[in-house]
Simulated scan of single mutants.
Amino acid sequence: MRYRDLLPSILIGAVASARSMSPMAALAGAHLAGRRSPGRLVLLKQPLFTAGALMMGIGELFGDKMKTAPDRTVALGLLARIMSAGIAGAALALRGRERAGAAVAVATAVPLAYLTLAGRKRAMSRIGQIRSGLIEDAVIVSSAIAIVGWATRRR
Rank of each mutant, 00 (worst) to 15 (best):
A85K: 10
A85E: 09
A85R: 06
A85H: 10
G86Q: 05
G86C: 08
I87N: 04
A88C: 04
A88P: 00
A88D: 01
A88Y: 07
G89I: 08
G89V: 09
G89Q: 05
G89K: 09
G89L: 07
A91M: 02
A91V: 01
A91L: 03
L92C: 09
L92V: 10
A93V: 01
A93I: 02
A93C: 10
L94Q: 13
L94W: 08
L94N: 10
L94P: 02
R95N: 13
G96W: 09
G96L: 11
G96S: 07
R97C: 01
E98V: 05
E98F: 08
E98T: 02
E98K: 10
R99E: 06
R99D: 04
A102V: 06
A102W: 04
A102F: 05
A102T: 04
A102C: 10
A103L: 15
A103V: 15
A105V: 11
A105N: 06
V106P: 00
V106F: 10
V106T: 06
A107I: 11
A107R: 05
A107P: 01
T108V: 08
T108S: 11
T108P: 00
T108L: 09
A109P: 00
A109K: 03
A109N: 03
A109W: 03
V110R: 11
V110T: 10
P111A: 02
P111Q: 06
L112I: 03
L112V: 09
L112F: 14
L112T: 02
A113Y: 07
Y114R: 11
L115K: 03
L115G: 06
L115D: 00
L115Q: 05
L115F: 11
L115T: 04
L115P: 00
T116Q: 01
T116A: 05
T116G: 02
T116C: 04
T116L: 04
L117F: 10
L117S: 12
L117K: 14
L117A: 15
A118F: 13
A118P: 00
A118C: 03
A118I: 06
G119T: 02
G119E: 02
G119I: 09
R120Q: 12
K121I: 10
R122A: 14
A123Q: 04
M124S: 01
M124Y: 11
S125Q: 14
S125L: 14
R126I: 13
R126G: 05
R126F: 11
R126D: 01
R126A: 13
I127F: 14
G128M: 06
I130C: 04
I130M: 13
I130F: 11
I130T: 14
R131F: 07
S132L: 09
S132E: 03
G133N: 12
G133S: 14
G133A: 11
G133I: 07
G133D: 05
L134P: 00
L134Q: 07
I135N: 03
I135M: 14
E136Q: 13
E136K: 08
D137L: 07
D137E: 06
D137P: 00
D137M: 14
D137S: 12
A138C: 12
A138N: 09
V139C: 11
V139M: 14
I140C: 11
I140E: 02
I140F: 12
V141P: 00
V141I: 15
V141F: 13
V141M: 09
V141G: 01
S142N: 00
